[in-house]
Amino acid sequence: MRNRPAKVNKIRVKRGKLEKREAMMGVLFCVPWIIGAAVFLVYPIFTSLYYSLAGVTVDSVNGIMATPLNQIQWNNLQEKYVQVISHDQNFLPALLDYLVSTLVSVPVIVVFSMIIAMMLNQKIRGKGFFRMIFFLPVIIVSGPLLSLLSESSANTLSVVDTQTITGAIGSFLPPALATPVTSLFTNMVTILWYSGVPILIFISALQKIDTSQYEAAYVDGASAWEMFWKITLPALKPMILLNCVYTIVFISSNDQNSIIGLIKQAMISGTDEKGYDYAAAMAWIYAIVEVLLVGIFALIFMTRRDKYEKQGKKIDRQMRRERRKVLHIQRRQARHAKRYHRPTVR
């Protein structure tokens, strides 16, 4: 009777040999990447979290050192964060600015690249050439090139008179709303340049759509407009979220970003109040805001889970519940048997 509970445990589905071997292969394939990421990404990121909470001490022998565990002021962990949020005059406005401008420009970039992608998927002359041109910004946007261009103000629309547009917008919108919109117009070129990779991703999704679907819709008398809403858009939907995330990340980690400049400044300033811990706290706040931004877009564009998948999960849950119940009953029986010393019948 003693070994009864052990037997019960075996009800849990054990992974088979084949599955185990497959999992091993999976791990094997990612091990190099995992090691690289763990040493040079994950570990530094979490160390920076520790620094931002515990603070760093700078001494002339060891250079920068984290405060050792026994000297941490446990009740004052959030000190740096409070400093960043409430005492820094530059950080919070910059963050707010970034938040608003990203919220405005991401939909513009995604919609623009979707339109361009659909055009580039039509039958037109010189399609290859156009695709190349529209992918070209990828090599401009990242790197020091962009700073040179913005220095010489080549990234503002000098062809179109932006002043009149911004003036017109400012006249009928409240200023709080008008600023992001007008900045959108002045930075139009930069926004267009960000759309290289999104266009590419959209094109690849468009090519996945079966042309016979369009033919069938055409035979049934659907207009191009209807086809767009019923066929093209649903097929593109997962890519929309992907592109939103990509664009947000791209904008946020760009060298042109003012917040990154602030972080860099704080890091090398080396004063008492602003040091590496301060910069780390800034970076963490920034990362959290970024995650929130991505979350907002994910909430809007999340594809609904498949009905079957949902049902499968439900059944799974039910089975687990039943299994637990069985386990519970078995255990109770074992307990009773022990308590009342009933002779076991073999």
Partner: peptide
Amino acid sequence: MFVATAVLIPR
């Protein structure tokens, strides 16, 4: 999501 410059010192 994390800024690359911020991990410079641990790196």
